[in-house]
């Protein structure tokens, strides 16, 4: 269990990560909103509590490897890295998606080497994470660092994901944890109407994985599941994290129309476009103030 103090600290950090996401998306004028807001708690739990890393030395050989498969939620990663102290300035955050920026619309590790991979096209991260995990084992480093692979639920519609699911079980990659952002939305609608994925846990179980589930916004639960996954032996672990897309901004929550749209260009039935950015920041600031009370 986390102490109340630690729990509150993480909640506050996650809130600031969310504010930064909105502040990046506004000047970009394009990008994804729902996924990054929904995954802010998990990224905060990783970067501020669980991950073995050194922001001042991103090439540290013993760092945990964090592979982001669904690259389109990169604003949350850039934001979390910024708050964690990686070499990203507030000015640079405003260059997101702009020409010459290291913070490209989908992650480019050749420009921002603190990322482990470049990504974007869905369903490709888990295969690469398996490659990292196999390499670690070949070098006898399986206990020195852990491989974390963040995936979306939608990309489980890709056959390549399941090719990798089979391989990870075959090679018993227990130095690998997959986290699924189970937010039930994708661009064209709800996942279960676009292509039903449930029962997702049973699918993984039948592929001989260790399957854990968590509320994606409860730090005690998230941290416990992440730690548990590292301790399990002889098989890979998947953590299905039930998240609320758009979390923290009432008019964005659980609305698939906010998947790939920035504030200012979103659906107008709740808040007019010219007020979406300011209103999102106002709501997040209000949460911050309540946490600080």
């Amino acid at each position: 269990m986390l102490t109340d103090k630690k729990n509150k600290e993480l909640e506050l950090t996650a809130n600031r990560v969310r504010q930064t996401i909105i502040e990046m998306l506004i000047p970009a004028g394009a990008g994804h909103t729902a996924g990054p807001l929904g995954m802010a708690d998990i990224f905060t739990a990783l970067y501020f509590h669980v991950l073995k890393h050194d922001p001042k030395n991103p090439a540290w050989p013993e760092r945990d490897r964090l592979i982001l498969s669904n690259g389109h939620i990169c604003p949350v990663r850039y934001s979390a890295m910024y708050h964690a102290g990686y070499d990203i300035t507030p000015e640079e955050l405003k260059t997101f998606r702009k020409i010459g920026s290291r913070l490209e619309g989908h992650p480019n590790m050749r420009r921002l080497p603190a990322l482990e991979t470049s990504s974007g096209p869905l369903g490709e991260g888990l295969s690469q994470a398996c490659g990292f995990a196999l390499a670690a084992r070949m070098d006898g480093n399986q206990n020195k660092y852990h491989i974390w692979c963040l995936t979306s639920d939608g990309e489980h519609e890709e056959g390549m994901t399941w090719e990798a699911v089979m391989l990870a079980a075959k090679y018993k990659l227990d130095n690998l944890t997959v986290i699924i952002d189970r937010n039930y939305i994708q661009i064209d609608g709800d996942t279960e109407s676009v292509m039903p994925l449930d029962p997702l846990a049973e699918k993984y179980k039948s592929f001989n994985w260790n399957v854990l589930e968590t509320d994606g916004h409860d730090f005690n639960e998230i941290v416990a599941r992440l730690e548990e996954s590292k301790a399990d032996r002889g098989r890979p672990t998947v953590i299905i994290a039930r998240t609320t897309p758009g979390k923290g901004v009432s008019f964005m929550e659980n609305d698939y129309r906010w998947h790939g749209i920035p504030p200012g260009l979103g659906p107008e039935d709740k808040v007019p476009r010219e007020r979406q950015a300011a209103e999102a920041l106002r709501e997040l600031k209000e949460i911050e103030n309540n946490l600080l009370k």
Binding site: R65, S127, F132, A133, A135
Partner: peptide, 9 residues
């Protein structure tokens, strides 16, 4: 994909 991961590593 696995080849890519190995190469990154």
């Amino acid at each position: 994909g696995v080849s890519a991961g190995l190469a990154y590593a």
